[in-house]
């Protein structure tokens, strides 16, 4: 295939997910809490559900990552959704159905799913 100048942009868009993942850029960030408690209550399935949603959506500007225990083990599995420029929101007692709703409503459209949310913001550090 011989490229035209405009093809560079197409390839670049195709690579955007990789590029963003490595440079930490992105419009939204999904973090699944995967400490022992999270994993024990099914965080792996929650993670897979988010990855499936992400892949199906074809969105390239969403970062997905995992982290450890958020400290509220009784409410696992948990995830944190952070839209760029807004404070992060923690979701608790996740199920695959909730993941679908959170992804569609919050990650894509920016509407917080109040009924599954624990609260906004981060813990105070220091």
């Amino acid at each position: 295939m011989k490229l035209k100048p405009e093809d560079l942009k197409k390839i670049s868009e195709k690579m955007e997910a990789s590029t963003n993942l490595r440079s930490g850029a992105g419009r939204a960030k999904i973090t699944v809490h995967m400490g022992t408690c999270g994993i024990a209550t099914g965080a792996r399935d929650i993670m897979k559900a988010f990855l499936d949603e992400l892949e199906a959506s074809g969105k390239k500007d969403i970062l997905f990552t995992t982290t450890g225990c958020a400290g509220l083990c009784s409410h696992e599995p948990m995830a944190t959704i952070e839209i760029k420029g807004e404070s992060p929101v923690k979701y608790v007692h996740l199920t695959k159905d909730k993941v679908k709703e959170i992804f569609e409503q919050h990650v894509i459209k920016g509407n917080i799913v109040e009924k599954s949310a624990l609260g906004r913001g981060s813990e105070r550090v220091g």
């Binding site: 390839i11 670049s12 690579m15 990789s18 590029t19 490595r22």
Partner: peptide
């Protein structure tokens, strides 16, 4: 940040856009 053997990854980081700019 890139796999040096993958041209798409280079293009993904603005690769060859300077050449396109110069030529056009």
């Amino acid at each position: 940040l890139i796999n040096p053997e993958n041209i798409d990854e280079y293009i993904g980081r603005e690769g060859y856009t300077a050449l396109a700019k110069v030529l056009t």
